[in-house]
Simulated assay, not measured.
Amino acid sequence: MMLPARFRSSHRDRQTDLDRLGPLYRQLGQALAGIERECTGLSGRLDEARTRAAALMGNEDGIYFDREPADEANLVEAEAQMMAAFRRLEQLRTQRSMLTAWRDEIEDTGVGGALRQWAGSDGLLTRFLRVVRARIAVIRRLSRFSAWMLLIVIVYATLSGVEQRPSVAWLMPDVERSLAFLAAAAAFALGYPRQRIAIFTIGLAAVVSLEFAQAWAPTRHGTLHDVLVKAVGVSLGLLLVSGLERLKQSVRVS
Score class of each variant (00 low, 15 high):
Val207Met: 03
Leu171Met: 15
Phe145Ala: 15
Ile136Phe: 08
Gly191Arg: 03
Arg116Pro: 02
Leu124Glu: 13
Ser143Pro: 07
Lys230Ala: 04
Leu179Pro: 02
Gly123Ala: 10
Phe188Leu: 14
Val175Thr: 13
Leu190Met: 15
Ile152Ser: 10
Trp102Glu: 08
Arg177Trp: 00
Leu171Tyr: 13
Val227Thr: 11
Glu211Lys: 12
Arg103Ile: 08
Tyr156Asn: 11
Gly123Leu: 11
Ala184Ile: 00
Trp216Arg: 12
Lys230Phe: 06
Pro193Tyr: 13
Ala180Val: 00
Ala147Trp: 03
Arg196Ala: 14
Ala157Thr: 05
Ser178Cys: 12
Glu211His: 04
Val168Tyr: 02
Gly110Arg: 00
Val207Pro: 01
Ala101Cys: 05
Glu176Met: 06
Phe212Ala: 12
Ala189Asp: 04
Trp148Ile: 04
Gln214His: 10
Ile202Ala: 15
Thr201Gln: 11
Phe128Asn: 08
Ile139Asn: 06
Ala185Ile: 02
Val162Asn: 12
Leu115Asn: 07
Ser121Met: 01
Leu182Pro: 01
Val155His: 00
Ile106Thr: 01
Ala198Asp: 02
Arg140Glu: 09
Leu190Ser: 14
Arg133Leu: 05
Val131His: 14
Met172His: 15
Asp122Ala: 11
Val153Ile: 10
Tyr156Met: 08
Leu159Asn: 05
Ala213Phe: 07
Gly161Leu: 03
Val111Lys: 03
Pro166Gly: 13
Ser160Gln: 05
Leu125Asp: 13
Ala137Asp: 15
Thr201His: 10
Glu163Phe: 07
Val175Ala: 09
Leu150Thr: 00
Arg196His: 06
Asp174Gln: 08
Arg144Leu: 11
Ser178Asn: 09
His221Asn: 12
Gln164Thr: 04
Gly110Thr: 01
Leu142Thr: 07
Ala157Ser: 03
Arg196Ile: 15
Arg135Leu: 11
His221Gln: 12
Arg165His: 04
Thr158His: 03
Arg194Pro: 02
Val153Thr: 04
Arg103Gly: 03
Ser178Gln: 05
Arg133Pro: 07
Leu182Glu: 08
Ala184Asp: 02
Leu179Trp: 12
Arg130Trp: 09
Thr158Gly: 01
Ala189Thr: 15
Gly203Asn: 07
Ala180Thr: 00
Ala187Lys: 00
Ser167Phe: 08
Ile199Gly: 00
Arg141His: 07
Thr109His: 00
Gly120Cys: 14
Pro173His: 10
Thr158Asp: 02
Glu107Thr: 12
Phe212Asn: 14
Pro166Trp: 12
Thr100Asn: 10
Ser167Cys: 06
Thr126Lys: 12
Thr201Asn: 05
Phe200Lys: 02
Val175Ile: 14
Ala185Gln: 11
Ser167Tyr: 10
Arg144Phe: 04
Ala185Met: 12
Phe188Tyr: 15
Arg135His: 14
Ser160Asp: 09
Leu159Cys: 06
Glu176Arg: 05
Asp104Val: 07
Ala189Phe: 09
Ala189Tyr: 02
Gly222Met: 09
Ile197Asp: 03
Ala134Thr: 09
Glu105Gln: 01
Leu228Thr: 13
Arg116Ala: 14
Ser178Lys: 13
Ala101Ser: 05
Ala205Met: 14
Phe188Asn: 00
Ala183His: 13
His225Pro: 01
Leu159Phe: 11
Ala137His: 11
Ala119Ile: 01
Leu124Gln: 14
Val162Tyr: 03
Phe181Glu: 00
Trp170Tyr: 06
